[in-house]
Design a binder for these strands. Structure first.
Lengths: 392, 392
DNA sequence: AGGAATATATTTAGCTTGTATCTAAATTAC
DNA sequence: GTAATTTAGATACAAGCTAAATATATTCCT
């Protein structure tokens, strides 16, 4: 007949209230019953019952009374003090690139406590070997963190391919399509992990909103603009995927200039530098070199940066017209040097769009995807905390 | 300290379950207790209790036992039959254009039972007079529907300006900025109505997904492409607004051609026709005339349509790259004739984007905005049903 | 040091809403 | 007319919340 929704039973109340209490305890350093009463609107009896429940499940711990006299001594019976158990489990954040995979382990507050990278032997290795390399990076990161696979509650994984809302890679145009499905089931089979696959630019957006220059911005676009160009779009605090997960895949967006439209800043700098000349025309036309030369005042390099700024301004303006974000963050491999592009971009925007966003450069460097992957995994854990089993 | 969320009390359960039951009854023509048990997962006792509740509040009615023998006679004690009370209240859908306002009255199933249009005396009349004209259209439509202002549960209103998520017009660049705020409070003061302001293209998207060619499509874009060009964007079944409500305002999007980028199909046809010539170059260069001429095989007119197709294909491709919708619907004043553009657009799309959406033409004609406004109002009523007072 | 004041903790009674189970009612089929 | 079948209604009970009364631990003041 219909996929009938589960009936709301009294147990649902406890779930909802426990979730609210847990959220507040997670946000605070330490919480007392009275604070939680004010925050949740529950009575003391309910708050305490919920806390006992959460302690039993391992999500929070009760702290001992401080032996030392507290800084500002308060009258009355001392309150029981509850704290989030940030080591109730851990999450993994993966940045799976074409050449290298980086794994980062974080506790439930998001503090990274282990990290490891492994490179693939070649670009065309079979899926099985690729999974082996990824798994190795994960295990090394866990070891560095001093924990083991059994404590992992969720894995966020970013790849440079369209991923739809359900974590499936639909587009069959690349080798990923074969590979990714293998990854999810492989890590499930190996360790029992829940793997949340996402597009790398989308994860970059999550990361930037969490701990980058877009902190707290609900309408945010992150341009992952190193070698390739991809956008992670958040509207009203939610990631946009589109029908097949290809939202933000700016594949053919640029219909004006002759360059490949999926080229990022680094690729453009290299190409135009190789074609154009300048003092470093003789040497290898690397992107860092172009930025260096421009910083030193070289006219040809400056002209290239200007051209890149123009191009980025057009891309950002298209985004501004369609999505109207509050802020656009430029991230990826060239983020450190991309600051030099900002004035040129910002100055051009009003010519191209009536709603120019704030444009900034990511402070997260090459960690942008793993940070976002961790956030993605934490979001899952926080949403499903009361359904997850904690391993001792 | 914090905006503390309301605690989940046992009453919440009833609210949740009543909402679920009401949703199912609204969807079905008539429902029995046994059906609702299966659909909601509740026990019979709870289902009956909820239904009694809903009857008391006026949202549903209990039907008499049919005197006639039913078509397929069933064994056992006959079930009580519950039906949605589609006349528990009504909603208004407004299309507030620059020259004319149209008001439509619908019952709670969305059937339009009254309609009225009123034009403004001039473009620059004061806000007070404008509100008066709108109010007149509303009252006439209500009279035509045989009901009165007291039965209106919500009003959806579409305007051709950016409106943010909260229904506020932020951009101050047009006379709307003064006008709209007046509308909400004016109709609240006059009749006690809750007015939900939205961008007209956004409402078009709601309408198209509800009763147009995008029925049931979660990732849908509607181009309102008459005189002006605006997009209503839905992703995962939700409308996109962006920071200031300007998402889909394609203001300066086109950086390629010399035409004003906010021009819609009709405007383009007129401009290019006036500039270009053709058999009807002597007469008034109206958009319908261009489509007529093209249908008759006129080469110049065909060339203009081709040029429009190219332009629309580029716009749609930009959208496809950023949002990846499943479908794009072209609506607005020219929707009837826009079918002639479809082959030209569809053929060009693969050149511009790797993820071409299905492109269709709206069947809703000039009712597209009022239909969407009704849907918008119904969404509000359905979400807030159990908090709303029913009059009469 | 001892009592008052204060803040927190715990207990008890009662309300709402749900489930589960049993009995009653109304209809069809033979 | 009786059995089978389906729905309705009633009773018992469990979960979770509130509210109010009572108990406990600490600081402040004399």
């Amino acid at each position: 007949m219909m996929p009938h929704a589960a009936a709301a039973t009294p147990q649902l109340l406890r779930r909802v209230n426990a979730q609210a209490v847990l959220r507040h305890i997670r946000g605070a350093d330490v919480a007392t019953g009275t604070e939680l009463m004010a925050l949740t609107g529950l009575t003391r009896a309910s708050v305490i019952a919920v806390c006992e429940d959460l302690i039993g499940r391992g999500w929070i711990v009760e702290l001992d009374q401080p032996r030392t006299v507290p800084a500002n001594p308060r009258k009355g019976r001392p309150a029981r003090r509850f704290a989030f158990n940030r080591e109730a489990g851990f999450v993994l954040g993966l940045d799976i690139g074409a050449a290298t995979t980086t794994a980062a382990v974080a506790d439930l507050r998001g503090t990274v406590i282990g990290r490891s990278s492994e490179s693939f032997r070649a670009a065309d290795i079979p899926a099985q070997e690729r999974i082996g390399v990824i798994d190795l990076a994960c295990r090394q990161a866990l070891e560095a963190a001093g924990t083991d696979p059994g404590t992992v509650l969720a894995v966020g994984a970013g790849i440079a391919a369209p991923v739809d809302r359900d974590g499936n890679v639909l587009v069959t145009q690349r080798f990923w399509s074969l590979f990714d499905v293998g990854l999810r089931s492989a890590l499930k089979d190996l360790h029992g992990w829940t793997v949340l696959l996402e597009n790398d630019a989308n994860l970059a957006a999550l990361g930037e909103r969490w701990r980058g220059s877009g902190a707290g911005v609900d309408d945010l676009v992150v341009l992952l603009a190193g070698e390739r160009l991809g956008a992670g779009v958040m509207e009203s605090g939610r990631l946009l995927h589109g029908r097949g997960g290809a939202a933000g895949e700016m594949g053919y967006l640029d219909m004006v200039e002759g360059v490949g439209s999926s080229d990022g800043i680094a690729a453009l700098a290299r190409q135009w530098s190789a074609a154009g000349g300048g003092p470093s025309a003789g040497g290898p036309a690397s992107a860092p070199r172009v930025f260096e030369d421009a910083a030193a005042g070289d006219a040809a390099a400056l002209a290239i940066l200007d051209r890149i700024s123009e191009r980025m301004a057009r891309v950002i303006a298209s985004i501004a017209s369609l999505i109207n974000p509050e802020q656009v963050v430029i991230g990826g491999a060239v983020a450190e040097s991309a600051g030099a592009l900002l004035p040129g971009i910002t100055a051009r925007l009003p010519r191209f769009t009536a709603t120019p966003p704030r444009v900034t450069v990511s402070p997260l460097g090459d960690k942008i995807v793993t940070v976002g992957a961790i956030r993605h995994a934490l979001d899952f854990v926080e949403a499903n905390a009361l359904e997850l089993e904690l391993a001792g």
